[in-house]
Amino acid sequence: MLSNLNDPASSYIKTVNDQKPLIEFINIVKTFKTEAGIFPALRGVNLSIDRGEFVSIMGKSGSGKSTLINMLTGIDRPSQGEIYVAGTPVHQLSESEIAKWRGANLGVVFQFFQLLPTLTLIENIRLPMDFCDIFPRSERTDRAMALLELVGLAREANKTPARLSGGQQQRAAIARALANDPPIIATDEPTGNLDSATASQVIELFEGLVAQGKTIIMVTHDSELAQRASRKISIADGQIV
């Protein structure tokens, strides 16, 4: 199913040397300045992730795990160090370049789903395609529909998010993250607002995507869910342990 969705139009994204890791964090330091002083959130993180890995990042509140994933998505920038994703030096891109780069290379799934309330599911999924202009206009609606089928929500395509349960919204959010067929999915506590059965379904969906070759980085504080990843990383007080 998903292989159908891997459109040749986006294949340039993956023109990287397979020998090198897909994601490389080199000595990442992030400090936050507050009036009360400097607070170090990440203190020298080195990390490489290969294509097709399902990585869980565990840690307590305040350990720096959300900051770490924000470095990857370009939502936040490192104070020091370098980040390469598929060869792109993310730490050097401007805010506007990052938005474009992220749209094409990274699907982000949030804890609170963050679907746009005024758009229907299919429109929510078309939106990133319209922003990034990778898939031809004529194919977008079909592709959005195919993605909804993938997450089992084809029948709800014309409903607004408010009419769906949390689990359904999160599945739609995952379909949206796949809109531009990015090689990487980054997600921060994707099951934080779901009950355990629904959470399990969402993780199954991730496992399916990994089987198709996607790389997934998931932040969680739930050790049971973290067990299901192919690699577990623990972080405490801004360092990988």
């Binding site: 998505t73 939502i75 805010e95 506007s96 938005a99 474009k100 992220r102 749209g103 094409a104 982000v108 949030f110 963050q114 746009l116 309330p117 939106l127 990133p128 922003f131 990034c132 949206r176 993250a177 809109a179 531009n180």
Partner: peptide, 16 residues
């Protein structure tokens, strides 16, 4: 504000 942040997170540029 939050919606605009989401737009940017899913690939919207300043112009969009």
């Amino acid at each position: 504000t939050r919606e605009i942040g989401v737009l940017r997170a899913i690939g919207a540029t300043n112009t969009s």
